[in-house]
Nucleic acid binder design. Structure first.
Length: 321
DNA sequence: AAGAAATGCAACCGCCCCTAT
DNA sequence: CATAGGGGCGGTTGCATTTCT
């Protein structure tokens, strides 16, 4: 037994709004406000519409200062950044973009932005060299890090940490480390993994200032990032996992626990996030990896691409520097 | 030129959260 | 405390427009 609908669908107009309806709604709200009740509003405004339909029309179209189309590179970056961190919480994402509606952002992501990213990361069809500002964004660690700091942090919307997508897990083995929630982008066939910030924190907060090139050199500054592969900087190694079975690993493999069937991963005893399902990753070959890295080497300084080699046992790629 | 396919996007559906009672 | 119902949200639909063949 389902819930009763909010209004009688047979006596209510549906479909696209006419200019007349628009101006009725707009005039009424500008004069009287919403009165805190959308359900009764259409009757008072002389509209034969469902209250929810009025609310939607107002919020997505009639309300003042709404922008449509022409998303800027900066907006792209913010959307991508938030999406990889919190997923499809469109209203939260929209709250970071003045004048944008959640509906618009959702449409934009589903129809354009996602494809843009997918095209960049399609297995066996790597598009090199990377040119998109989005790709730049994901490969330039400080940008990622700083942007997430400067926009207002949506974690405030999640008072309960166990459901807070921004909640940073503390690493019990290494109190200097925190791990942001694990970001994943998924399509119907593959799981695409994007970057996460593993950021250092200390009591005085000074580690917020760490620069990109430092991240790889401090053993307790652990950074994972990027497009289609992971990097782990740990004890002067970094590691890229890129087979389509297992997904991630660290320089110290025993830090990572692969759960059965390869669909869940945890870090030490701390579950990284509630949305794990990391296989299969992109199936990059060695040449692809080298190409990716070399087009990308502002991310990690001081290593030689030619030294990248694959460990056949675990499918990981290694490079010492 | 015209039919087909793809795309863009406003609007709807229905579930869940929150709050007033 | 329990519950009803409005608000809010994310997923999806369906149609108009654009692009492709």
């Amino acid at each position: 037994m389902g819930r009763a609908p909010c209004c009688d669908k047979t006596s209510v107009k549906r479909g696209p709004w006419s200019p007349e309806e628009d101006s009725k709604l707009k005039d009424y709200i500008e004069k009287h406000g919403t009165g805190g009740n959308w359900i009764s509003l259409p009757h008072k405004a002389g509209l034969k519409r469902c209250g929810k339909s009025c609310r939607l029309r107002w919020l997505n179209y009639l309300r003042p200062n709404i922008k449509h189309g022409d998303f800027s590179d900066e907006e792209d970056r913010i959307i991508c950044s938030l999406y990889v961190n919190i997923g499809s919480r469109w209203s939260i994402i929209a709250a970071q973009l003045p004048g944008r509606t959640d509906n618009d952002i959702k449409n934009y992501w589903n129809t354009k932005l996602k494809k843009k990213l997918m095209a960049l990361h399609h297995p066996r069809k790597p598009s090199f060299p990377p040119s998109s500002s989005i790709l730049d964004y994901f490969t330039q660690t400080p940008t990622t890090f700083n942007d997430l700091q400067t926009i207002s942090h949506p974690s405030n919307n999640y008072p309960n940490t166990s459901f807070n997508p921004f909640y940073q897990n503390q690493d019990s083995m290494n109190p200097h480390m925190q791990y942001n929630n694990y970001p994943i982008i998924k399509d119907n066939n593959n799981m695409f993994m994007f970057g996460s910030e593993g950021s250092c924190t200390s009591s005085d907060g000074s580690c917020k200032e760490i620069k990109q090139e430092e991240i790889g050199y401090h053993h307790h500054h652990h950074h994972m990032s990027s497009i289609g592969f992971d990097e782990f900087n740990n004890n002067n190694n970094f590691m890229i996992s890129s087979n389509n079975e297992s997904v991630i690993g660290g320089a110290n493999m025993n830090q990572y626990e692969e759960k059965s069937s390869g669909v869940g991963y945890s870090y030490n005893s701390t579950t990284i996030s509630q949305t794990q399902a990391l296989t299969p990753l992109l199936d990059y070959g060695l040449e692809d990896i080298k190409h990716l890295i070399s087009s990308n080497n502002n991310n990690i300084k001081g290593f030689n691409v030619d030294e990248i080699h694959k460990n056949e046992e675990n499918g990981m790629y290694y490079c010492h520097y």
